[in-house]
Design a protein around this nucleic acid. Structure first.
Lengths: 346, 346
DNA sequence: ATGAAAGCGCTAACAA
DNA sequence: TTGTTAGCGCTTTCAT
């Protein structure tokens, strides 16, 4: 095990200076073809591979970008990370991933770790609202936030409030007057916006607001099932559910099926696999993580090239997939049997 | 823009030598508490983050590991990556991700890029069978493969053949004699093993083997739907389907529901979200990506500590989740209505 | 217990 | 066109 060859070894083997080797490595045109040839042969002979570490230390610039999301196994974020990884590959960058698990201190820790790697930029789904340490001059790294925005940073988000309003309105239009909201975590911006939209819709339809219909559900863990149970045991339980995010939607849908309560109308914020195959099929607000990833990456590269850009908050329109779960008509409170009124899909 | 703080800045701010700062950073016990305190305050005050690059250059060892999988947005692999990320965080390592998209040349490219970052080790779901360049002495990096094995490397895989056999046997025990296999890509080891198991089962039950029941389905893309259609248009179509992986299972289940052909019996290799909420609920072979991730990571660390270990092929038992889709009884070819015989879940 | 100085492999000034 | 020299930020002898 002779240890790795260094640029010096190459230089002495080729009987040139290290600088000449460096020039060859960096494809600088002003190198005599003869020497270039000598250097190239030495490189091959010694199995020389340049050290990116040393280069980075010298130039101060890595080929790394960081991606920090709530959880890598969340379908929405795994799609996002996957897209970013594609973009990065094309741009010749490597991707560092880290997850926050909705925990601000873990987020901070992860961000600091990442910062240590001196990435060219970071794409972040922010948990904390106070990200000052990221903006601190001494540490400054280009950051684009996704899904949620943070003061002073570029962002690419969905139009949460408008989309959520549309979803709740659909439920109301189907005749529901008691609509539960599952997935409200007061700490998160998206949750807040979606809740505001819910309240707008309730108010616009002159329904009776009821805080009991909007339990707090922490993002982390599986609190959604518990929320469903407490909602169902209310004296005057909801006949419809607005599911504020796809993760909780998946839990709630599972629970609803286990309980045989498929008579409950539902709209989910965020499409999820098999939503259309369920009985009844679940109506969803459709976010596009791929597009979000592409736009965030592009913006990040713009900012890397010009750090003095004004922060830009890009809001993506969301789609709406009308399936059947929102149309369930609230019956006279006799829960229907396992298979609900809806049947006519395709 | 004062530039980043360095260890020197910290040292002069704390009025100690760089070595003392270094000692504090590396938690060396022989540091006077008073000085330690001074250093710690300076670190906070200056927002100092040590440079792993410089440390790496000096010590020759990075704090990076690489994870290379088929696709980051595959539920199985996103769970795996997520677990590895957790382990890495605990061990103080950062995670580089890359995807192969089932493409050997992309795999090679990704691996070479990763190698350039000098990671401590790599966890890889291999596509190519020839990974010699990874083992080359000068480049040698510890590698543990997951899901599939490769000659000469540690691996953590499922017991594909045994598990698949069990799944097909269940279908046969329910009375099916024409069983389709969807998800066979001849290029992949797991697919081959699962197909062998399928053939074992068919033979053991003295059924008539029929190659038409086993279409080639490339892993990449969405060829599973097409395979389903061609299977269904056979003169003597299958009454049951063995779905050889969770990705294709999701596609097929969607298609089956769109076609209203929920009378088809199914067993899926790999559990997936909502499998239990569908009607009928889908019986699954249950792999545990979390466990696989933990074991792969642990093995990688062992190998990092001792590169001369003998390669170890760890095979994980898989679970079996009996739900209802495998029990559908092959009727006299009159497709049942939307809701199949099964009903009694919970 | 602490510090001064050397050097990891590379590139950027500056000279020649 | 080519070579010399001085660091990038850190850890590590080796003194003190």
């Amino acid at each position: 095990m002779p240890g790795r060859a260094t640029i010096k070894d190459v230089a002495s083997a080729a009987r040139v200076s290290v600088k000449t080797v460096s020039r060859v490595l960096n494809n600088i045109s002003t190198v005599d073809p003869v020497m270039r040839r000598r250097v190239e042969r030495a490189i091959v002979a010694l199995d020389y591979v340049p050290s990116p570490t040393a280069r980075t230390l010298r130039t101060g610039s890595t080929s790394l970008i960081g991606v920090v999301v709530d959880a890598i196994d969340d379908p929405f974020f795994s799609a996002l990370v996957s897209t970013v990884e594609d973009c990065a590959l094309q741009a010749g960058l490597d991707v560092l991933v880290a997850s926050t698990r909705f925990d601000t201190s873990r987020e901070r820790q992860q961000l600091l770790r990442l910062l240590g790697q001196r990435p060219r930029g970071i794409i972040l789904a922010p948990v904390a609202t106070d990200l000052d340490f990221l903006a601190a001059q001494r540490t400054a790294v280009p950051v684009v936030t996704v899904d949620r925005s943070a003061e002073g940073f570029d962002s690419v988000t969905g139009d949460d409030r408008a989309a959520a309003r549309r979803g709740v309105d659909h439920l109301i239009a189907s005749g529901h007057t008691r609509i539960g909201l599952i997935g409200f975590d007061p700490r998160f911006q998206t949750a807040q916006l979606r809740r505001l939209a819910y309240e707008d819709a309730v108010q616009a339809a002159h329904l009776t607001p009821d805080p009991q219909l909007v339990p707090d559900v922490p993002f982390a863990g599986d609190a959604a099932r518990g929320a469903l149970h407490s909602l169902l045991s209310l004296a005057d339980p909801p006949t419809a559910l607005f599911l504020a995010n796809a993760r909780h939607a998946t839990s709630v849908v599972s629970a609803v099926h286990e309980l045989g309560r498929t008579d409950l109308a539902m709209v989910s914020f965020g499409d999820f696999p098999l939503a259309g195959a369920l009985t009844p099929s679940v109506t969803c607000i459709n976010q596009d993580p791929h597009r979000m990833g592409v736009l965030a990456f592009e913006r990040l590269m713009e900012r890397v090239d010009d750090p003095d850009l004004q922060p830009l908050n890009r809001v993506l329109p969301t789609g709406f997939i009308e399936r059947s779960s929102h149309t369930l008509t609230p019956g006279p409170s006799e829960p229907a049997l396992a298979t609900a009124p809806t049947r006519g899909r395709r």
